[in-house]
């Protein structure tokens, strides 16, 4: 295994906000904390595959929280990641054991920091449902929307990267069309929004 740079919590959070350092920061998290998080899941009726899924989800939630400047550092990154993983896994277990297993129910946070993480987990659960809708879009739509909203590329940069669009206006129109299509799917799925609101209400 190649040498992985060591980070303090402050450096790690800063690195996760910087696109060029994100990969190295995630690698550090894997090296330092993956074993601990995997051990927790594996020793609580989970398999290594369960652990892999839950840890990835926890990581996504953590990075999201960091990138939104919602990680205040009241607890260490290790404790925070452990708390997220624990909550996600307990919620997954409840979902598996529940007759109504469509949604995960998250445990209310013990303190303000944890509650912030719990709310983020609920939002992520809602986003996961929207991602299922997103997968129904065409490949070009998915690729374009990821370039716009995840890669944060400008219309010009996207135009340079692809030959699918004649000019910026065509590209922009395609973006509007794809977003409208996705928004309409969300709007048409009232249950999704209701569950999300209820989950937030329950957790709060």
């Amino acid at each position: 295994m190649e040498i992985v740079r060591n980070y303090t919590d402050t450096e790690l959070v800063r690195a996760l906000k910087n696109d060029r350092e994100t990969d190295a920061a995630i690698k550090f998290i894997y090296k330092e904390y993956y074993g601990l998080l995997e051990y927790y899941v594996a020793n609580n009726n989970g398999s290594k595959d369960d652990a892999a899924d839950i840890i990835q989800e926890a990581l996504v939630a953590f990075i999201d929280i960091v990138q939104q400047d919602k990680f205040r550092g009241d607890s260490s990154v290790k404790s925070f990641l452990y708390s997220i993983t624990r909550n996600l896994w307990l919620s997954e277990l409840r979902k598996r054991n529940s007759a109504d297993n469509r949604n995960r129910i998250f445990q209310k946070g013990k303190d303000e920091t944890e509650q912030g993480a719990v709310n983020q987990l609920i939002k992520n659960e809602y986003y996961k449902a929207i991602q299922d809708l997103f997968q129904r879009l065409g490949e070009k739509c998915k690729q374009l929307l990821l370039l716009v909203y995840y890669e944060d590329l400008s219309m010009k940069d996207i135009l340079d990267k692809t030959t699918d669009y004649q000019n910026e206006q065509v590209l922009r129109n395609k973006k509007y069309k794809c977003m409208k299509q996705l928004e309409q799917m969300i709007e048409d799925n009232q249950d999704l929004k209701t569950q999300f609101k209820n989950a937030l209400k329950h957790a709060g």
Binding site: T22, D23, I26, K27, Y30, A52, I55, Q56, E57, L59, V60, I63, D64, K123, N124, Y126, Y127, K128, I130, Q131, F134, L145, L146, V148, Y149, Y150, E151, M179, L182, E183, I186
Partner: peptide, 19 residues
């Protein structure tokens, strides 16, 4: 929500790749 879900999807794919 759609925009945030797309961002989260991008991040999920990135984390999956790094995993």
């Amino acid at each position: 929500a759609a925009r945030n879900a797309i961002r989260a999807e991008g991040l999920r794919q990135k984390v999956k790749g790094l995993h």
